[in-house]
Design a protein around this nucleic acid. Structure first.
Ligand code: MN
Ligand code: MN
Ligand code: ZN
Ligand code: ZN
Lengths: 138, 138
DNA sequence: CACTACTTTAGAATCATTATAAATTCTTAA
DNA sequence: TTAAGAATTTATAATGATTCTAAAGTAGTG
């Protein structure tokens, strides 16, 4: 249960004015212990439920993109029909539960060292991400 | 330079009738040595260039999705704004060249064994894919 | 308070993809 | 070979996500 000043500071520090709408979005995104994986649609729904005031979709998009640009969110592409944002901006991997369409974090230290044997001349590795698709064992 | 009967057989064996359009699409997709990574837009352009007869976009989508369903193509999601199809249907990984938006195959044997230490109870691993983003070293 | 720059908003525009339904083509059993 | 039925293609409309626009509202500053 952070208080608003944390969010206001977070917004200010990234060059965004702390408006009612943005503070509300911050509460939903960042007022929690665990990583939050969400689609824009998820988020819009939660705003509609948690908040008496309506927030336009354009504002949701604008704010999320600003946070992404500032490094407060990462975007994750799993498949063509769904894109997620992730409040965990560390370098990390994911499980994707195909039965429930749920993303689960896999921290860097939960995956053994990844050895990329093939090299591409003149190119440098920017990131290495693992996606593990899972489904019910039965 | 395969001859058409190869494609016709490929189509037939997967329950698709060998129409002019599908055979032409097969030529573009499968008449080559190396893996082909493409977007629907890429493919539609190539059809327009290589083929005197027009093929509707709906047919391109239908055929690609049928091939995907039959296991002749894989779909790869790199980021929200581009989805690729891949003629390499083996279990494999990718480099993504951020400078050129180009995908490069990384075969399974070009990546050391991947050790997923975290387990999810009641779930079975369906696939493990690595995406390595690269850019010019300069 | 008054001014300015930033922000929000509804609605329009765009773009990829999917759906529809009529016209065409393929298959196969006379 | 042909006729009938099934599958396919096609143009076009519909959908859905995202982005754009421009007008109305709000925050920061002095
Ligand atoms: Mn985006
Ligand atoms: Mn698709
Ligand atoms: Zn995550
Ligand atoms: Zn590939």
């Amino acid at each position: 249960m952070s208080n608003n000043s944390v969010f206001i500071e977070k917004l200010r520090s990234s060059g965004l004015r702390p408006t009612r709408q943005r503070v509300q979005i911050c509460k939903i995104l960042f007022d929690r212990q665990k990583t939050f994986h969400f689609s824009i649609k998820d988020l819009a729904k939660m705003i509609a439920n948690d908040f008496s005031e309506k927030v336009s979709l354009a504002t949701v998009y604008n704010t999320i993109h600003a946070f992404k640009k500032r490094g407060y969110l990462k975007e994750i592409s799993i498949n063509s029909d769904k894109t997620y944002f992730d409040t965990n901006t560390s370098n990390h991997h994911h499980f994707f539960n195909e039965s429930t369409n749920e993303l689960i974090d896999l921290e860097n230290n939960e995956v053994g060292k990844i050895n990329i044997k093939k090299k591409i001349p003149g190119k440098k590795i920017k990131s290495v991400e693992v996606l593990v698709k899972i489904a019910n064992s039965n």
